[in-house]
Write a protein that binds this DNA or RNA. Sequence first.
DNA 1: CGTCTTTTTGAATACTGTCAATTTAAGTGG
DNA 2: CCACTTAAATTGACAGTATTCAAAAAGACG
Lengths: 262, 262
Amino acid sequence: MLTATLEAPVNPIRIMPARQTLGHAAVSPLATRCSNCHLRDLCLPCGMTGTDVERLDSLRFGRSKVKVGQTLYHEGDRFQFIYAVRSGTFKSSLTLTDGREQVSGFHMAGELMGLDGVAHGKHASSATALEDTEVCAIPYAHLTELAAGNSGTQNMISRLMSREIVREHSIMMLLGSMNAEERLVAFLLNLSQRLKARGYSASEFHLRMTRAEIGSYLGMKLETVSRTFSAFQQQRLLEVDKRHIRIIDLDGLTHAFEMRGH
Amino acid sequence: MLTATLEAPVNPIRIMPARQTLGHAAVSPLATRCSNCHLRDLCLPCGMTGTDVERLDSLRFGRSKVKVGQTLYHEGDRFQFIYAVRSGTFKSSLTLTDGREQVSGFHMAGELMGLDGVAHGKHASSATALEDTEVCAIPYAHLTELAAGNSGTQNMISRLMSREIVREHSIMMLLGSMNAEERLVAFLLNLSQRLKARGYSASEFHLRMTRAEIGSYLGMKLETVSRTFSAFQQQRLLEVDKRHIRIIDLDGLTHAFEMRGH
DNA sequence: CGTCTTTTTGAATACTGTCAATTTAAGTGG
DNA sequence: CCACTTAAATTGACAGTATTCAAAAAGACG
């Protein structure tokens, strides 16, 4: 049914060298140091002490721009790097045995991708850019070396992984016990919070993903996603214009979300 | 609706000292050493080298018997130990805002519980024994100390956590993209494999959990679980007698499982 | 031996999915 | 730049699956 020629182009991604000689060479490398990064409170260094964060600076890693539609890594690729989103949005996804795609997460600035590759040395999911993006590519081997001599770093890795486990728990809860409306509310409130934490408006934002991708993530069909958006709009809880969302009645939404079990 | 007096008794669990003086004291302590444990290929030491496993023996940890219905730890409890199942079966579960229980996993011999507590220092789920059980209670602080001086141990921890992430991915796939029959087949095949890996029959086994617990885990109602079992029985794929399951037609089941998307 | 839990099954309902048509937006190439 | 093609989103009508409510049977447990 699908014409293969129309698949999103999957070009190889080049990792930029850690140190790119530019006109402003004196400051540019600093930007790739964790301790100075504007995302440091959201990203790898989150929860680390100041001295431990400085130790993190001995990590030398490259940055890479990934254009919309490009794939940063594929399910099954050898696991070498974990990636931190610097800007833009990614989705991660798995391919089902019948070839369909199952979206397993969305990632924005400061969030990590690829931790599922540690288990077997191969990426267990694929990461695709939903808009033009930039990532830090952190060599996992370097990170473990650093952790070997520094328990703060080691604890950070463990905490990050555990956080991922907890995060997935909550998605399991969502998929296992909520109806379509509750799922969509949970999704929107989660997005809203994460955007707020990044300095964006919590009440008005632009979705970077299609209805099909939202549906795949939430375990519902794209038509149901669309219908549920329309229903919320009619109830005056949201204003929806394609991918532009404005939350009108946050309490109403939250209420709809919590009224499971009557 | 529920009478509080009928809740399963939640007695405090006593952790037995690592070294209990018994008649056969000469061999008993060895049983708690990872390198000699009959579960070593499934449990913590899985994938470690021989010398690293021996280093694991410097971990001193206690064992604990947990009776059916008792809870090993509760959601929100301070996180101190990770637990390895020695014998019996556990469920982990979360409590939803409306008070209902969401089962997030089942755990059998050699499997670890509690890794979700690393993230915030509190257990993110509760663990309840589905039959009389025994666990090793491994102090997480000791484990990280050991890992600080031994990269093999550190990698083990990371791998185990990543494995948990991958495992949860597959449950998300299940919940997000399968219908009732497919979910139940996936569940049974998974149980079957895990039992086989532990030396039990892959084709005939006893379920330790109720229909309601299976349903909660698989995102369906207990009645649907029951009906689906009955349907499989009518199709001569299974023999079901309450909790006793016999797989008659493994290929048929597997086929039913893979025929998503026709 | 009676009580309570667990399981099974039926009937009716509700929700989500499927199929299809339409609209709008986005991207491509002349 | 416009015509054309393709993708994304919305909406309706209908079908199908899972849930809800209810009742009964079978175990489990004290």
